[in-house]
Design a binder for these strands. Structure first.
Length: 433
RNA sequence: UCCGGAGUAGCUCAAUGGCAGAGCAAUCGGCUGUUAACCGAUGGGUUGAAGGUUCGAGCCCUUCCUCCGGAGCCA
């Protein structure tokens, strides 16, 4: 009885009889020969069905197997005579497990985005989407390995929150047993509490934004990792961020070369992602804009997608932009002692126009200053009493950041749009499948 | 919410205001080394919806719907 082998492991079974189970990708016939391409999620293999090597019934059946039918093929593993290093299966038996109930909608030719997104549950089977799923999984694993390996404790933040934490984003409102509750836009405030408990904390989970954003960089539901470290300042935060991104890039390069090849990613761009990253101030960024086609840029402006691209294109690796004007930033950032109009914050802009993938900074740890900031932003003080407690009971300098997983995956894979980086995207006009 | 673009066969797209088409997919046939195979044949349409102009509308006009790209907002 032939052993069931995953296609990805076939090279270890050359010359042996094995059984492969999967879905029909392609079928090419030439009279007395069928080339049956089977996919099982770990790879694809071409099964060669020669009329003289199988029963007449098997040969006829093999020639009629529809796209995405589930099949079992038993045969001998051999090297492709035309492609050294590529292995195929000399079929002896072919069994149909399940024929498609109807014609498979995704044909080998090109399709429009909307059609593919409507069929996302099937589109995931394609080699490109398969490669993206695997890179995403690798990045998620790298995120955990990085922080776990540096003594961080994973502290899960809640999804339901009682109020609009930062007051800067539009949130999804839900009914919580008669009260209003909101889907979280960030776990950061909770991580500040966690940092006082475990020193180095991080959370990693879904995050929700209800803004009606319609761009290649936005999702309504996305995943964010947010480390927060006690007794760390902005300098340490920037160091952590660049070590973190370099770690992720290296991990993907080391373990997902095949997938990056399928995605036709220029890996030389990723190989340059080594710490330290260039660091510029917000004011230097404005100057770069003024000198590169945005003469209207002035201090006080925030950066849009175009501006981020202009800045990031000046560098061959991610660039850190730090010390933005306080009025552009959330209430919780610490003011720069050297210039109180500036925040001790930083954004990391990914290369090649992928935009902001990290935002963070040092938090305000002075109770009175924080109270004034909450008043200045006209936020409900009572909702932040627990947060202010963190300054009342042993305040401590601390910093952290948030990294958007989807933008990181899009950048790593060289994708045009974040909708392909998450298995089932939630967007302004998309809630299904 | 605003600006721009698009909606025609299952899919991707053609069609001067004058017979609604092609490629792929599907079905049938041919071929012993194919790689989005190739060759031949067959079936496949409420042209997003409603109204209007016209002898005649896929095409022009009005309204609406859906999607795409961007802006704003944001990660």
């Amino acid at each position: 009885m032939a052993e069931h082998v995953w296609i990805g492991d076939l090279r270890e079974h050359v010359g042996k009889d094995v059984e492969v189970r999967g879905w029909r990708n392609h079928l090419r016939s030439s009279g007395k020969l069928h080339f049956l391409e089977v996919r099982d999620g770990t790879g694809t293999v071409q099964a060669v069905v020669f009329k003289g090597s199988v029963t007449p019934e098997t040969f006829e059946k093999a020639g009629t197997i529809a796209q995405e039918a589930t099949v079992t093929v038993r045969g001998t593993v051999s090297e492709n005579p035309k492609k050294p290093g590529v292995f195929e299966l000399q079929a002896k038996e072919v069994e149909l497990y399940a024929a498609p109930a109807r014609e498979y909608p995704i044909s080998p030719k090109e399709h429009g985005v909307d059609f593919l997104m409507d069929n996302r549950h099937l589109w995931l089977r394609s080699s490109r989407q398969n490669a993206i799923l695997k890179v995403r999984a690798t990045i998620v694993r790298a995120v955990r390995d990085f922080f776990d390996g540096r003594g961080f404790t994973l502290v899960d933040a809640p999804i339901f929150t009682p109020n609009a934490c930062e007051g800067t984003s539009t949130l999804f409102e839900t009914d919580y047993h008669g009260d209003k509750a909101y889907l979280t836009q960030s776990g950061q405030l909770y991580m500040e509490a966690a940092a006082a408990a475990v020193g180095k904390a991080y959370c990693f989970g879904p995050t929700f934004r209800a803004e009606k954003s319609k761009t290649r960089r936005h999702l309504a539901e996305f995943w964010m990792v947010e480390p927060e470290v006690a007794f760390m300042d902005l300098e340490g935060d920037m160091k952590l961020a660049e070590d973190f991104l370099a770690f992720i890039a290296q991990r993907v390069l080391e373990t997902r070369g095949e997938e990056l090849k399928i995605l036709e990613r220029d890996t030389s761009k990723l190989e340059k992602v080594i710490a330290p990253f260039p660091r510029i101030t917000y004011h230097e960024a404005i100057q770069i804009l003024q000198e590169n086609g945005h003469p209207e840029a002035k201090v006080g402006d925030d950066f849009g997608g175009d501006e981020e691209t202009v800045i990031s294109n000046k560098f061959d690796r991610p660039v850190i932009v730090h010390r933005y004007p306080m009025e552009l930033k959330a209430f919780y950032f610490k003011k720069d002692p050297a210039n109180p109009s500036l925040a001790l914050n930083m954004d990391v802009l990914a290369p090649e126009g992928y935009g902001e993938i990290i935002g963070g900074g040092q938090r305000e740890d002075d109770l009175d200053t924080l109270v004034r900031a909450i008043e200045h932003h006209k936020l409900p003080m009572e909702a932040f009493e627990w947060y202010l407690d963190l300054r009342r009971y042993g305040s401590f300098p601390h910093a952290g950041f948030g990294l958007g997983i989807e933008r990181t995956v899009a950048w790593t894979c060289g994708l045009h749009h974040v909708r392909e980086t998450i298995p089932f995207a939630r967007m302004l006009n998309r809630l299904s499948p």
